[in-house]
Design a protein around this nucleic acid. Structure first.
Length: 272
DNA sequence: CGCCAGGCCTGCACGC
DNA sequence: TGCGTGCAGGCCTGGC
């Protein structure tokens, strides 16, 4: 479930526990994830100091001196900071045991997550090279979005979820962003004017930023001993609100299916 | 008991 | 033949 804001909040929570700390050892309890945890993972990370914890899209990147841990939370993954003595439970795939005694624990019931080792530049890793610019950075602009949608007949909503076009926005925030931008989710992407691309870029940034800020207030729970990942925004404008009144115009929110995904939108506020 | 949610890679089919 | 594009499949388990 984590989208970019949840990943970013996790990163911020991890930095204070991990930066400058040495990894004493890694305990792989269940290496079965989207891809198996590499056979030599433990040997690679043992004894390494974590210089920084960075993020690219929804990928967490741990600088471990001689290489990088690339970690994706998938749909159901979470990282928790736990006391070293805490017993592991179901779906606890990996522990990074730090010299400080703190354990960084990766739990992932649905196993869509990934833990990889990259000896070189992680941004050149196959999974990261073709990602769109960081949505909260200066390279993610209306011009960029406009340029990369010119030939695309697909619905804008599915392209907002395409990491080559927009990074970090999953199913929930895609609906939310399009509502904020006043754009109908089924609109063909190539028909978006530059002005509407501007609105969409701003809406994506506002949606992500608001969620990151909401996450900051729940940071302790999120990465803490008892924390479970959840979406920070308790109420959405449209997501999951089919039949309920639009918060702007009171029209009932509609639900539809797009590419096997549920989409929510206001038929009045959002236009093609 | 069966279905579905979700991220996102992968592979297929299609048209130029 | 090759590429861009648009779909659909697959991986999983918890919760309804």
């Amino acid at each position: 479930m984590p989208e970019l804001p949840e990943v970013e909040t996790t990163r911020r929570g991890l930095v204070q526990h991990m930066q400058g700390q040495r990894i004493a050892t890694a305990i792989i309890r269940n290496g079965s994830l989207r891809w198996p945890i590499p056979r030599d993972f433990r040997r690679r990370v043992a004894g390494r100091m974590v210089r920084t914890v960075e993020r690219r899209g929804k990928y967490l990147l741990f600088d471990c001196e001689t290489g990088w841990i690339i970690l994706h939370l998938g749909m159901s993954g979470s990282l928790q900071v736990v006391p070293g003595a805490a017993t592991a439970g179901k779906h606890d795939h990996l522990d990074l045991v730090l010299d400080s005694g703190v354990v960084i624990r990766f739990n992932d019931p649905r196993r869509f997550g990934a833990v990889l080792w990259e000896p070189g530049d992680p941004l050149r890793h196959r999974l990261l090279t073709d990602l769109a610019p960081e949505p909260l950075g200066t390279d993610f602009t209306a011009a960029w979005l406009h340029k990369h949608t010119r030939t695309r007949n697909a619905a804008i909503k599915s392209l907002v979820m395409d990491s080559h076009i927009v990074v970090g926005v999953g199913n929930i925030y895609a609906s939310e962003s399009l509502f904020r931008a006043g754009i109908h989710p089924a609109m063909a992407a190539r028909r978006l004017s530059l002005l509407r691309c501007e609105k969409l870029v701003a809406a994506i940034q506002q949606t992500l930023q608001a969620a990151i800020e909401a996450g900051g207030s729940t940071l302790r729970n999120y990465v803490g001993a008892e924390g479970r990942p959840g979406y920070f925004q308790k109420s959405y404008f449209v997501y999951g609100r089919a039949g309920h009144p639009c918060q702007v115009c009171v029209t009932p929110i509609k639900a539809m299916r797009q590419g096997q995904r549920s989409t929510f939108y206001c038929p009045v506020c959002q236009r093609r």
